[in-house]
Design a protein around this nucleic acid. Structure first.
Lengths: 329, 329
DNA sequence: TTCTGTTCTGTAATCGTTTACAAATAAATG
DNA sequence: CATTTATTTGTAAACGATTACAGAACAGAA
């Protein structure tokens, strides 16, 4: 691969001029521009990002940190991030931490090393202190999860309100025994959704029974199945279940089927996230749709704006309750 | 962030020595090594990848090209790739082409630009000519899809044999009217799987009816639903359906449910890929498991070996038919 | 002491760009 | 034509690392 000097030689100009053509600067004659462009074509030249990045000390690479690839929750967000980034001439580096601090370190070092310009963190298990420290010198945006002290700009939905809407929807359908399958409350969203759930129950004078609040270990299908199994063993069985993620809800649904009960007749079921599968289950799953793609785009634009020196503020987007067969009637 | 010269100053040595400490070369006194390491700590120094990469003209970044993020098929493969790569000191850049040649170009240019060292391509829609051209000067490995002329090393399963096994399984269950929901036969795997399907039918003296071979437009749920709808409208309805992907099979299952028929009693159903959701459907889905994680790991090791100058050969891994409820009895 | 051989360290070039500054050329003005 | 001004181009110094080469320091041998 030819370099800029060879192009310059071939075109009979200096490398500075070639660079100017490349970055379509103003001060270059039509004549020389053409010579240079011809030489570029002849030599099949592509400017080296490595050299350019070193000089400009930017990499035009954005880190997107997620806990793991297998969670379908992230896919649409990532699409949004990627579309916007590419449009702006940035590429994204998708980083899976597996909630492993070592991995996290590797990625953070890439930022310190200038191998990446900024970070969009979607990892709920991220080490907040380290992230804060990184944020002092580097551009960081959080997406969907965020820091309660709000020192890092984020884009998210109002989880408390969304959960409140879900619970209210179930109450309106006549349910009085509403269980919550929550994930670990070390996650902010889990705490917030529980709050919304409890607010609705209180508002309608329903009791908050601790045995109806189940905490799963993880976020896989089997965590949902297991949770539902426990709930169905209770002497006072709930008639509706709100699971804080679709994967959990789908696992729960599976368990209901296994026990030959019917959703929604015996148990109404609501998930969260509107992953694509949630519309393929039998019955289809009522869920909360977050504006994933929009969140991704917003996060990317916030990050890129920050990189360009602007101040950016956090954004809270609207969610939407999608009512399907699992809560009909 | 401090640079190498500042560290050198602080430690009272030259930058060359600092570099030697960094790359733990032999020729450095214990005494000076300690001074340097102290200085590195004091200044909180991290070597700049940008500088290092430029000098070494490598980026230790691997491109992983997939058609889109939303396809769960790829997640485990990517896990395998990433685990192995990180272990070897490489990072991966996940690239979604959306089957858009422009995107593809951007990514290929990154390789030409030395922004990435090599490519693992899993995009069935990739422009083979361009990939071939790129492969002349750069390290490229294909995963799961590959070039029939086999000029680029690949890792894959034997699709023909896998499809043959599926069809044989259905035949053994007594089915004689077996439909195939295939994707577009521009994809190699689609052609191969069809071959295997037809070989089994022939072998057992069953007719190959063209109306039982349906080609979907895409790979989404609705493509499967649509295909199944068509098949169920036939005057001579198949009693078993083999869909070449789980997503399609799940869409098909949905349609069977909608029409209030039963799987497997009215229609047996087999998918392909063993995505995690295939075990959560009702009934659970018989499918073919590819050794995803292993494929990913293998692809990564092949690529890294190539980068280190070794010759590598293509690898064909074993698949496994996983029999579940959708083909019981 | 002088010489040889080893081991450690420093100098300076290099990778491929961009850009401040200077120089050259062209255009405009009196 | 000389002079000023505007425009285009070239020179050379960065950016931050690595490394061939040379030089320094030291030890051991004669």
């Amino acid at each position: 691969m030819a370099n800029i000097r060879e192009v310059a030689n071939k075109a009979g100009v200096s490398s500075a001029t070639v660079s100017r053509v490349l970055n379509n600067a103003h001060a270059v004659t039509e004549n020389t521009r053409q010579k240079v462009e011809q030489a570029i074509k002849d030599l099949n030249y592509e400017p080296s990002m490595l050299g350019r990045n070193l000089r400009n000390s930017e990499s035009r690479l954005l880190l997107v940190v997620i806990p793991n690839f297998s969670n379908p929750y992230y896919t649409e967000i990532i699409n949004g991030i990627e579309d916007y980034s590419i449009e702006q001439g940035y590429n994204i580096l998708l980083c899976e931490t597996d909630s492993n601090p070592n991995r996290e370190n590797i990625f953070f070092n890439m930022v310190k090393n200038k191998l990446a310009d900024g970070v969009i963190s979607m990892d709920p298990t991220v080490n907040m202190d380290k992230l804060q420290e990184l944020a002092e010198k580097h551009a960081i945006v959080m997406c969907s999860e965020y820091d309660e002290q709000e020192r890092i700009p984020y884009v998210a939905i109002n989880n408390e309100r969304a959960a409140y809407k879900v619970a209210k929807h179930l109450i309106r359908l006549g349910h009085e025994k509403i269980a919550l399958i929550n994930s670990d409350e070390k996650f902010l969203y889990a705490r917030q959704r529980r709050k919304g759930y409890e607010r609705a129950l209180k508002e309608f004078g329903l009791p908050i029974k601790l045995e109806w609040i189940y905490h799963t270990q993880g976020l896989d299908f089997q965590d949902g199945s297991q949770a539902m199994r426990k709930l169905l063993q209770l002497e006072e069985c709930p008639t509706a279940v709100f699971a804080v993620s679709d994967t959990i809800a789908i696992g729960a649904l599976k368990e209901v089927n296994v026990q030959e009960l019917k959703v929604p007749d015996d148990i109404a079921l609501v998930g969260f996230d509107n992953i694509s599968f949630s519309n393929m289950t039998n019955p289809t799953l009522t869920t909360v749709a977050q504006p994933m793609y929009q969140m991704g785009k917003t996060a990317a634009s916030m990050l890129i704006n920050r990189l360009q020196g602007q101040k950016v503020d956090s954004v809270v987007l609207d969610d939407e309750l999608i009512i399907r067969e699992s809560t009909l009637n």
